[in-house]
Computed example of a mutant assay.
Amino acid sequence: MTEAAEDWREALRAKGYRLTPQRELVLGAVERLRHATPEEVLAVVRESSSAINLSTVYRNLEVLEELGLVRHAHLGERASTYHSVSGRPHFHAVCRKCQKVTSVDPSVADGICERLREEYAFEADVAHLTVFGACVDCSSEPT
């Protein structure tokens, strides 16, 4: 068992939650998909267990987010998208044309974070930030 796997199991136990196969399947699906809606998570989970339904996925995502193991982001018009926090910290750049999601290193936002701090005495949490625009492929297409 990996150290990361044991860490999340300990986090569950410390908060009084049971370690269930459903939670393990949901977290595994989120990690596999990288950025996924609850419906996409359900599709992957159902590859292993047809007994899990969408409400079970939502409940487990809520618990996993409370434990700090996943985060949600709003990446457009669709349902909230969940991603694991086990990878490197990042925020999202989303192409409005092709819906491509790019994970961006938080240091890219250092300038705006500094201005917010200096001018507004505001500490930004860029890990929940989503920036919309056009990716290089779509911005070079004729309109």
Rank of each mutant, 00 (worst) to 15 (best):
H74T: 08
M1C: 13
A127T: 13
L12I: 08
A121L: 14
C138T: 10
E114H: 05
E114L: 08
H90Y: 10
V108R: 05
A5C: 11
N53G: 11
S103N: 13
A127Q: 15
S55K: 15
R34P: 04
V136M: 13
S103I: 02
T102R: 14
G68W: 04
V104A: 02
L64Y: 01
E31H: 07
A14D: 11
R71H: 09
C95N: 01
A36H: 00
A51V: 10
F132T: 05
R59C: 10
A79L: 10
E118C: 08
A51W: 11
E119C: 03
R23T: 07
R23W: 00
L61G: 02
T81D: 03
L61F: 02
V94F: 00
E66I: 05
R115C: 09
G133C: 05
Q99M: 07
P106E: 05
A79S: 14
V45K: 09
T143M: 12
R34W: 10
E40I: 02
F122R: 03
D125E: 04
Q22S: 14
C113K: 03
Q22R: 14
Y82R: 01
R34G: 09
S103Q: 06
E3T: 14
A36L: 05
C138F: 09
G76Q: 04
S84E: 04
R96K: 13
K15D: 11
N60Q: 10
L25F: 05
E119T: 00
E141K: 11
E31N: 08
E141H: 13
A36Q: 00
E118D: 14
R13D: 13
H83F: 13
C98L: 09
F122K: 07
E77Y: 09
E39I: 08
S49A: 15
A127E: 15
S86I: 01
V94S: 01
